[in-house]
Amino acid sequence: MSSDTVTFTTAPACSIGALYIHTKPITPDVYGNTKARRARELRPRRNYLLNEDVEKQRRSLLQRNPEVESSVADVEASSDLLQNLREKMPEFMPRPDILSRDRILEKLERQDMYRRREVINIPEFFVGSIMAVTVADKSAPGKQRRFVGICIYREGQGLSANFILRNVIDGQGVEIRFELYNPTLLKIETLKLEKRLDDQLMYLRDAPQEYSTVPFDFEPVPLPKGAAVPLNPLKVKLNRRPWHERWERMNLKGVEDLGLPERFYKRAQELAKPWERFDLMKQYRSTIDDDEAQTVMKEVYAKTKNIQSLRRQQRTQKQKEK
């Protein structure tokens, strides 16, 4: 083949077979190493693949069955609605730790979660809401057990999402951790839907028992349709020290004045890290990119809508049968 038919430019050329391609000149350093080679040697050795490399492979056209993007982007939902959904169902969000994140794993996990949500109704709830959970139990007399309490903690992503209910029974504080997607949960109810001033209410362990006592025959308090979730501005008066944790260092809002000597607050101030609010890298690592979150929440929105309509159909069918 004559070179004039194929050359693109007259610049220095590199050949692959007989194909001429325009390149920029390469300048090696004193030791004869090029820039790219030096960069390669400085790269850390890893015995695993990077997340982005795996993603590239999954979509690469050289693969036998390259993955095709699903059409989630067609869903019409305002960003406010998606943000609202994100607060309601935080367990659907990807894991905050970058190193343990994988798209396919999370997708498969979410599929299971939708399936489970079709079987039982998992209602909206927040830390501070009063809930009742019915569990299948081998050793209980009726093979079932119902527990009522106030939700003091909620954590976990995917199928391992869980929450803690607290109540006082016969003068003894009792806490049970329930897994949200455990198949032995028969029924989950929110008896009173409300939020509190803090993200977690672990300090109720060090508060007088009346704050965490809920009667087992607590009647559900219905919320008018379309109303926003009410915020309970209750401030808790803690017991005197000793405590489980040093609450004065936690920057709590739902707690009355702790009444400690001056030195405790001084020490708390010393150990505080107010600059972490401005640490952009730390925030980037511990939170999830908004775009990524939106694509996930759009999928959740579409699926949960289907589940709701399914449930409505079932309800009307049952009424007709009656």
Partner: peptide, 24 residues
Amino acid sequence: KLGLVPQWTKTGEKITTTLVQILD
């Protein structure tokens, strides 16, 4: 290796499983 995910048996016991993808 993709990561860990919990699963349950029909008797209600929890198992941890490791997900492994066989790519291409």
